[in-house]
């Protein structure tokens, strides 16, 4: 039996070497398969299908490559030379692909941490819009003007992210200015009736409407509303025009900026008094 294992087949490769080579490559194949199944299970709902396919192949080929490197000594390939060459090549490739690797790693962290999801309404740095795709290297955002923007994942990961729909509900405010001669309590009541009647102005937490400040040209009424995050913008647009129309119909003025100028003429009583 030992003689059979030591039998040379080609060059210095024996039957025993062949068996070891086959076992190593088979094990690499099995490990690659198991790891890829695990990746598919874990990331299938988090990563886009084509991206996942690329990631799975990269991992599978990487594991196979490690297997191939492990069997090279049996073919009398000097790994020390290969390691030196590989090290130099690695440094060069590393410098060249620094940003790619950085984006890749950031992409993996984004997938795990999930600060944004597809369809979310976000601002990343100076880019605002809806998330269209989260890829391994980049995130695709469609701006509100419909413009396609590709943001590298490294930038997404390191930037401040504002996600407008991460919470189920959000608040927004209006400041409505009315004239000093108008009835502020009546205006408050009218505004409260309008916002309360809207289905998507939440019952809890309820809206609050109050005189917030006495401005230079107007009495400022603050309107604070909570809405479902998915509906806030349509509610905001819808209500503002309704408030304007209602106040106008009720004879309540929304004044322009204005200044009262008192003109003193010589001979006026004030002058005489002074």
């Amino acid at each position: 039996m030992i003689d059979l294992l030591g039998t040379v087949i080609v060059g210095q490769i024996t039957v025993g070497d062949l068996i070891v080579i086959a076992v190593i490559l088979f094990a690499a194949g099995i490990i690659g398969k198991v790891v890829t199944i695990y990746i598919k299970k874990s990331l299938s709902d988090k990563v886009e299908k084509n991206e996942l396919k690329v990631l799975v192949r990269a991992v599978q080929y990487g594991i196979l490559l490690i297997g191939v490197i492990a069997v090279l000594p049996y073919f009398q390939v000097n790994l020390s030379g290969l390691l030196v060459a590989g090290g130099i090549a690695g440094v060069i490739i590393g410098f060249a692909s620094q940003s790619v690797v950085s984006n890749f790693v950031s992409g993996l962290f984004l997938i795990v941490e999930r600060p944004v999801s597809i369809g979310d309404n976000i601002t990343i740095g100076e880019v605002s819009g809806n998330v269209e795709e989260i890829r391994i290297l980049s995130t695709i955002i469609r701006s509100y003007e419909g413009v396609y923007t590709r943001v590298p994942n490294e930038k997404v990961f390191t930037s401040d992210i504002t996600n407008y729909v991460a919470n189920v509900a959000r608040r927004f405010d209006y400041t409505i200015g009315i004239g000093y001669r108008d009835d502020a309590e009546k205006a408050e009541r009218l505004i409260r009736d309008i916002v309360t009647a809207h289905p998507f102005v939440l019952r809890n937490p309820g809206p609050s409407v109050f005189v917030d400040s006495l401005g230079e040209s107007s009495v400022n009424i603050m309107v604070r509303l909570w809405t479902p995050s998915s509906q806030w913008y349509s509610v905001k647009k819808d209500l503002l025009i309704k408030i304007k129309r209602t106040l106008e119909n009720q004879g309540i003025e929304i004044p322009y900026p204005q200044q009262v100028v008192w003109v003193h003429r010589p001979g006026d009583q004030a002058d005489r008094g002074g």
Binding site: N167, V168, A169, P199, L202, R203, W226
Partner: peptide, 19 residues
């Protein structure tokens, strides 16, 4: 019936409800 919605729980963990 006119519709009205509400929030049950906090904004970051609760649910929007038909009220």
């Amino acid at each position: 019936v006119p519709q009205k919605y509400s929030l049950y729980g906090p904004p970051d963990g609760g649910v929007v409800t038909r009220y």
